[in-house]
């Protein structure tokens, strides 16, 4: 009797999960369907849901017409370097802000936050002049540096929240054992805040991966383009190859899903680490 009730509520729960997933994924599924329709089905009025036969032409043209793998490589290098820098720099700062005593902490926190309040469009022109003068246009670093800077505020704020949660006793016992500040930070604080660290990493990665404005203006050479700009390159003056663009967006989303699947294991391992503290 009791078992049955559990089962029913379990089934209801799974129905709920599947429903939520369907709603979330529907536009993306539609995008996938779009990417395998024929040109005629794509533009038909009213819309056709399921194509008669699977058409992979768009995928073919995404990789053949343009060096799309190069764009993915560029985006990957820029986004992963940004993530590493951002998480490193931010976790140093957050550790200090969350756990050490020194003057001016609140001022630093608000200064960091204020940076992210300016609209990107206002910053792009002065930054271009700076990048031009230091010869960093059309380089990876020219994107990595500003991306790191503009992902820092979220990273610092988020990590500071997490570092604050970690009980002080753990840190103190380590220090009593003779560990330096750096050692306690690397061995205790950083691993214990793993859910926060990996969340921050994913968020930084995706925001760097998706950035458009700086990438458009700073990196104008074809070989240095990132994915969002590359996708914006598909349309012509009077041409909207929506099939190609749908295929491209599916292609670039899948590596991200894989990365998330890898990272989310880290989040779980952080969970078990978190259990120690309780």
């Amino acid at each position: 009797m009791k078992k049955n009730r559990v089962n029913i509520s379990g089934i209801l729960f799974y129905i709920l999960v599947i429903a939520v997933m369907l709603i979330i994924l529907f536009p993306f599924i539609w995008q996938i369907l779009t990417s395998i329709k024929s040109e005629r089905e794509l533009w038909s009025i009213p819309p056709i849901w399921i194509p008669k036969k699977i058409n992979l032409d768009y995928y073919y043209s995404v990789f053949i017409k343009r060096p799309f793998l190069t764009y993915i490589k560029n985006s990957f290098i820029v986004a992963s370097s940004t993530t590493v820098f951002s998480v490193l720099v931010a976790s140093f700062a957050s550790y200090a802000l969350a756990r050490l005593h020194f003057k001016g902490k609140n001022i630093i926190l608000s200064l960091v936050l204020a940076v992210s309040m300016f609209p990107g469009i206002a910053i792009v022109s002065p930054l271009y002049i700076f990048m031009m003068n230091v010869h960093l246009l059309n380089t990876y670093i020219g994107l990595i540096i500003p991306y790191t800077t503009f992902t820092l505020p979220l990273a610092i704020w988020n990590l500071t929240t997490f570092f604050r949660e970690i009980p002080f006793e753990l840190e103190e016992s380590a220090r009593v054992d003779g560990a330096t500040y750096m050692q306690t930070f690397m061995r205790i604080i950083f691993p214990l805040a793993a859910p926060g660290v990996f969340t921050t990493a994913i968020l930084s990665f995706i925001s760097a991966w998706n950035e458009f404005l700086f990438a458009l203006v700073f990196n104008t050479k074809d070989m240095m383009r990132t994915v969002p700009v590359a996708i914006a390159m598909f349309p012509g003056e009077h041409e909207l190859p929506w099939g190609d663009m749908a295929a491209a967006s599916v292609v670039v989303t899948i590596p991200l899903i894989i990365i998330v699947l890898i990272f989310q294991r880290r989040i779980i391992s952080g969970l078990t680490a978190g259990a120690i503290k309780g």
């Binding site: 992963s80 031009m132 380089t139 990876y140």
Partner: peptide
């Protein structure tokens, strides 16, 4: 595993930097 991961990240970083420098001047 944590060490492995940081090694990997450092490797990515190095690739990023060298490739970036190769980009050369405007």
């Amino acid at each position: 595993r944590f060490k492995m991961l940081s090694l990997l990240l450092v490797a990515i970083l190095v690739v990023g930097l060298t490739a970036g420098c190769g980009g050369g001047g405007q």
